[in-house]
Amino acid sequence: MAEAAAPLLDVRDLKTHFKTEGGLFRAVDGISFQVHRGRTLGIVGESGCGKSVTSLSIMGLVPQPPGIRAGGEILFEGEDLLKKRPAELRRIRGGEISMIFQEPMTSLNPVFTVGDQITEAITAHLPLGAAAARERAIAMLRRVRIPSPERRIDDYPHQMSGGMRQRVMIAMALACEPKLLIADEPTTALDVTIQAQILDLMRTLRDETGTSIILITHDLGVIAELADEVVVMYAGKIVESASVKALFADPQHPYTIGLMGSIPKLDEQRTRLASIEGTVPPPFALPEGCRFNPRCPFADDRCRREQPPLRTLRDGHAVACWKAPLEEAA
């Protein structure tokens, strides 16, 4: 989706590696994508394919060591986050860019009330006194539909259900009106009714505030619900990127096809699900050539030798496969 305005976030050839005893882990290995203002970018892929490392890289939260910034740029409003000093990054984190994690219990501190934690996030980034910050915290809790927020603000995280804790995380993440919200598997740990509530809430808040979102998930259903653009990741690389409509209407990469075929459809009764054989390779044992080749039914000698580049098929739709479109390869 080519837009005239400069993107809010422009990630260029990002490489984040880990140096470990087992060798060099190329967890994120040369990925590029853009997030436009007010839009939601989905990142989808199986576990271990580098989604979380991507989000931690943007937040400047990759532990170093073992992490290595092996290259690339992360341009946020035109400035490279990889070149910022730690103090500057801290100011941006939780202010202009904030993050929601998969398991709210591990990211909320159990010994402080949720109110303490939200007000702390507010006062760290906004020029507000204690009373005003608390008021804002209550307003945020109301906004994420926590019932009787005046009372619940003094709860400890363990006194809340998983869905309420996730809403608290969202309240905290949005308290300083970030320009970019990174949500890493925000509903994975939740029941479907609560997941639907959270997705509805994120959609409403996005439409009200114009915040851009990076939505990381392994669930293509969640992507279809919320994303405008999608990036499909496999083993540290982007294998396909497209608008959400183009991805579902015209999926190109064998991995994308396999992922879609693995999900049972509600309206189609198949005797068997399509599957992707084998598992994601560990990043220290990446295959030569196309990284998907050991699992790909179309792989040939060239695939085992040469890595396919991410090539643009048409405006906004790119794929990294020698054989796309597949009906011609079969």
């Binding site: 539909r145 009714t193 639907a196 509805d200 959609r203 619900e225 959400v244 579902f248 879609m260």
Partner: peptide, 19 residues
């Protein structure tokens, strides 16, 4: 409440509230 892999399905459904 099931998220379905089809961006054309209308969002914002009459879902139940609360826990």
């Amino acid at each position: 409440a099931i998220p379905v892999a089809d961006p054309e399905v209308p969002h914002g459904r009459g879902i139940i509230q609360g826990d």
